[in-house]
Design a protein around this nucleic acid. Structure first.
Lengths: 150, 150
DNA sequence: CCCATTCAGTTGCAATTTGCTACTTAATTG
DNA sequence: CAATTAAGTAGCAAATTGCAACTGAATGGG
């Protein structure tokens, strides 16, 4: 599991993985920063222009995401300036971004409105994710439940 | 696509489905309310006790989620009081909750810490989701990109 | 090499959002 | 029918966010 970069956080609900993730990235901007990092944003200005976030808030979010181990700073080609890139943990949020995107496509647009799409290296749209059990049964909130930590 | 319950929102980034979803549920509490609704919370007090959210904020979030079409109010068995239940659009956030949960399990706990788990009706833990292309290639931020709306 | 511009922030302050505690009114319970 | 619980609302304090201006390094062009 993760290294201990999140040890000093006052978790909203310490035993719930959903709540911990929301504590780390569940604000108005962090997930959009991650989204743009996944789409090759690297510099402070990249993120500022793509999101439109206020500069002081962006600085704060980049700092937090770096502290939490989702971003890291690396030297730019020039060797002098720094860039932000996703860590493995940050990249692993891909599935979250994908499900947010697909839900939005299904429910947050009215017919006829268009929107950006996520495509693979062949410019083919990616499949829709439906959670499945090992035997292929679709999983929903109606056939699953949360079991408290033992 | 969705009916027009979100028409009056000032979208952060109107063409991006990720951003629209974040506009609807990307605050500190909404996703935890959805999480609990998926785990059979129904009354105001259910949600208040499970999340620990302040009562005025909870009232506001329940109102918004209802306005956005993620929750609806239905008559309690008594016929007098009301309960909140997920709409189809709300239930469809299941995949988002699952990916948030699985990311948290992988990255927001240190070894040895325990946490609640999501299980199916046979109490079996559900599989990990890995986004895949149609041909079975794992998809990541390195082999996908966003294509602007045409 | 020097001036202008861009980059990556920081600072100060205003506006918005959140959280706490107490209060209210309608159900439910004993 | 009195006491308790449910589902909020109201008022105010605290925290967060956003805006605009500022700063001090890097580039970049002539």
């Amino acid at each position: 599991m993760g290294h201990d970069m999140t040890a000093n956080i006052a978790w909203t609900d310490p035993r719930c993985p959903v709540a911990r993730t929301v504590d780390l990235v569940g604000d108005r901007w962090s997930l959009l920063v991650i989204r743009d990092a996944m789409d090759r944003a690297r510099s402070f200005t990249d993120f500022q222009q793509r999101t439109g976030i206020a500069r002081n808030i962006l600085a704060d979010r980049l700092r937090k995401l770096t502290t939490y181990g989702l971003l890291e700073q690396v030297d730019a080609p020039s060797g002098k300036r720094k860039l932000y890139k996703l860590t493995d943990a940050g990249k692993d949020l891909f599935s979250v971004i994908v499900t947010l995107r697909q839900w939005g496509e299904r429910h947050a647009f009215v017919a006829g409105e268009d929107h950006s799409v996520l495509v693979d290296d062949n410019d083919a749209r990616i499949p829709e994710f439906v959670p499945m059990s090992f035997d292929g049964t679709p999983l929903t909130s109606d056939n699953t439940h949360v079991q408290p930590a033992e």
